[in-house]
């Protein structure tokens, strides 16, 4: 029995002293293998009196278990140490940005177009499109701008031949949709698109730009409806709380016509450089659809009325994102474009 106690103390001390897995394996062989020291005790057992055998056997088994457990424990400890050392070895500089997936961007004019589309699609509008190479007929005549009108001058538009030009406003799309409706009411649409005017490019002018017009025709449509609709659009583009005001204006295809100002989103009407100290920013032109426009499209202007508005998308983008020069929108400089990668 004393042998068992001695062997146990010896084995456990030795296991505890092992410093690596090789040593531990040597230990295991030394004590637990078939020719190991514990197995050696079995040789003693056969010389013991019969009545002591079961007790001795039990003790040896207990010893075996204890040594095995201690070995396993020590093994786990050593493996842990080994792994920790390995992990420590893999220490890196976590401040380094080694992988930056490239974030592409949508063009700011696309962002504004989509914002307007989403706003009006939510109100049940359709998004209409039309050709940029347009007939004079839809661009001017149907928009109540007969021949000889100043806006039709060769000097102001890019004519291709006497009957065709690059459309000068997206109003041309409205005129097509009005005609295609064949009197089917109501009409609710917006029509974003590129338009062209014979302007020299500078910080605030561009020979090519984008507009989105909106048109609603139905029964009992009022100027107050126009105001409410525009307030909704401006809130969705610039956030809640923007006031708008109407000023009299003139467009051949609307009567009455109004210019719309929005309270300055930058200073909330207090006056700042963005609004040139006035607290207001001119944002779009609009009005009630001229009865001539409805009649030319075969719509009974006694029964139906409508409103229309046209907003310059560059202007919205410039105000919303603080762009100072309209040409930046067409230069497509990567440094500029990358500024639009964020959710806004």
């Amino acid at each position: 029995m004393e042998d068992i106690t001695n062997l146990k103390n010896e084995a456990l001390a030795k296991i505890d002293h092992c410093q690596d897995l090789n040593e531990l394996e040597e230990c295991r062989v030394l004590y637990l293998s078939k020719k190991g020291k514990i197995q050696g005790l079995m040789a003693i057992m056969k010389d013991l009196p019969k009545e002591e055998k079961p007790g001795f056997g039990q003790k040896v088994n207990e010893l075996k278990k204890e040594v095995t457990d201690r070995l396993e424990k020590r093994k786990a400890e050593l493996e842990d140490e080994l792994l920790n050392a390995k992990l420590e070895n893999e220490k890196i500089d976590i401040t380094l940005d080694a992988y930056t997936p490239s974030l592409g961007t949508l063009h700011p004019l696309t962002l504004v177009t989509q914002a307007i589309e989403d706003c009006f699609v939510g109100l049940g509008y359709m998004v209409a499109e039309g050709p940029e190479v347009e007939l004079d007929y839809y661009n001017f005549e149907r928009a109540n701008t007969p021949k000889g009108h100043p806006a039709r001058d060769m000097q102001d538009s890019f004519y291709i031949d006497p009957t065709t030009l690059l459309r000068t406003h997206t109003t041309a799309i409205q005129m097509r949709v009005l005609e295609e409706a064949h009197g089917q009411m109501p009409i609710k649409l917006i029509c974003p698109g590129k338009v062209y005017r014979r302007d020299n490019d500078d910080a605030t002018h561009s020979h090519q730009f984008m507009q989105s017009e909106g048109l609603v025709v139905g029964e009992n449509i009022t100027l107050a409806d126009l105001k409410g609709t525009l307030e909704f659009m401006i809130a969705s583009l610039f956030g809640e709380g923007q006031k708008i005001r109407f000023r009299p204006s003139y467009f051949p295809f609307t009567e009455p016509s109004v210019e719309v100002d929005m309270s300055c989103h930058n200073c909330h009407g207090k006056g700042c450089p963005v609004c040139k100290g006035t607290g207001w920013i001119e944002i779009l032109g609009s009005g009630m659809v001229h009865p001539n426009v409805l009649e030319m499209a075969g719509i009974d202007s006694k029964k139906y009325s409508g409103f229309a508005f046209g907003v310059g998308l560059e202007r919205i983008a410039m105000l919303k994102y603080g762009i100072k020069d309209i040409r930046d929108l067409y230069a497509n400089d990567k440094r500029f474009l990358e500024g639009f990668k964020r959710f806004d």
């Binding site: 109100l123 009022t222 100027l223 107050a224 609709t229 307030e231 009299p248 109004v258």
Partner: peptide, 24 residues
């Protein structure tokens, strides 16, 4: 409206049959 002013014009939305708004 030009000579009486727009200041007290109310804001409403058109009342009309529902239409489905959707991109094609």
């Amino acid at each position: 409206v030009r000579l009486t002013g727009y200041d007290d014009l109310s804001s409403t939305l058109p009342i009309m049959p529902s239409t489905i708004g959707k991109l094609n």
